[in-house]
């Protein structure tokens, strides 16, 4: 294992100390490992928090700031955070208008957030939760834990954060988050595995000429392993299940998000975006907004994911609103 770390046990703590040192104008880090917006709590504003395992940077800690999250709870690498963190985050950002928990659909995240929400309610804080489950690679049936929460989470955090910033109440913010979930679909692929620092070796083995289609963001093996194909073929393999699932139709306007898994250069992500544009053009679907880059990563994994969000005026307005976080900034 070759990594820029001091010790596997201290990776998350060392990273958070770096974040706090670099972005003191935007965030502060409080015990037990919670990244909180520097000016939280804001009186009368709905708090929006999220959290999940570390290793997906900049998500979630990099999205704390004006117009996005009020706090983020990073767990150990690829491990859901503990309820104490979400409780501390909820209390730190509660400005009296309630707090929304944005939860990715993983068994551990769901259980830990549920425990935290119960504890926060017991302390008199109004808490709602929306579960993001947008990965179409997973068959959504009684026989799985349901779809995983992946790229759609980033878009939900931006859009919902903008609404909260604009003064929307908890019910409105919660409904908006659910609307994003209802209109977003994603799928990812990997060219290489990743190595959890504490494990010290790759999570899975992939031959030099192989790729994994339908990969999760924790190195969970995907649904099919196959020989490497061209960017055009790979884009079609990811985009087609996404388009057919919602389904996206001719005339739809979408936000197209091409995300890198952490080890893939931008040059390749733009190649994928170009192929995606061709596919959507052919179907009469307009890319009204886009996001291209490494935003929800899987450590050093090479690969990408595609996320499509069907836009309407409300979602577009909140997407365009100013945001100022370590990981995403525009409009100011």
């Amino acid at each position: 294992m070759k990594k820029l770390i001091n010790a596997p046990e201290s990776v998350v703590d060392d990273e958070l100390a770096g974040v706090a040192a670099a972005h003191a104008d935007l965030v502060r880090v409080i015990e037990p490992n919670v990244v909180v917006r520097a000016d939280a709590p804001k009186k009368g504003k709905v708090g929006v928090i999220s959290g999940g395992g570390s290793g997906h940077e900049p998500m979630h800690g990099g999205f704390v700031g004006m117009g996005m999250l009020d706090a983020a709870c990073p767990g150990a690498v690829f491990t859901s955070p503990v309820p104490d963190q979400m409780l501390a985050a909820t209390k730190a950002v509660d400005g009296g208008a309630g707090v929304l928990h944005i939860v990715k659909n993983y068994t551990g995240d769901i259980m830990n957030f549920e425990l935290a929400a119960e504890m926060a309610r017991a302390e008199g804080i109004e808490v709602t939760s929306v579960v993001i489950a947008d990965d179409v690679a997973v068959k959504d049936s009684l026989y799985t834990a349901g779809r995983r929460g992946v790229g759609g989470t980033v878009l939900a955090e931006k859009i919902v954060g903008a609404a909260a910033e604009a003064g929307a109440d908890l019910a409105t913010v919660t409904a908006l988050c659910q609307k994003v979930q209802d209109n977003v679909r994603s799928m990812g692929m990997a060219l290489t595995s990743c190595t959890v620092p504490a494990a010290g070796k790759p999570t899975f083995e992939l031959g030099d000429d192989e790729m994994e289609i339908g990969i999760g963001i924790h190195g969970e093996p995907g649904r099919t392993r196959m020989k490497l194909a061209s960017a055009a073929e790979i884009t079609a393999m990811l985009a087609t299940p996404i388009l057919d699932d919602l389904p996206f139709k001719a005339g739809d306007k979408v936000l197209a998000f091409v995300n890198g898994m952490g080890g893939t250069p931008l040059i390749e992500l733009y190649v994928i975006f170009n192929e995606l544009k061709k596919i959507l053009d052919a179907r009469g679907i307009t890319i009204a907004r886009n996001l291209i880059g490494n935003y929800i990563t899987s450590l050093e994994m090479a690969g990408c994911s595609i996320t499509l969000l069907r836009l309407d005026d409300e979602l577009t307005k909140h997407w365009d609103a100013p945001v100022h976080t370590p990981g995403l900034r525009w409009g100011r």
Binding site: G53, G75, A76, S80, P81, P83, G108, M111, N112, L115
Partner: peptide, 12 residues
Amino acid sequence: LVSTVGGASGPL
């Protein structure tokens, strides 16, 4: 365990 493990194993 709930406060230190995380994941699904912590709550379980």
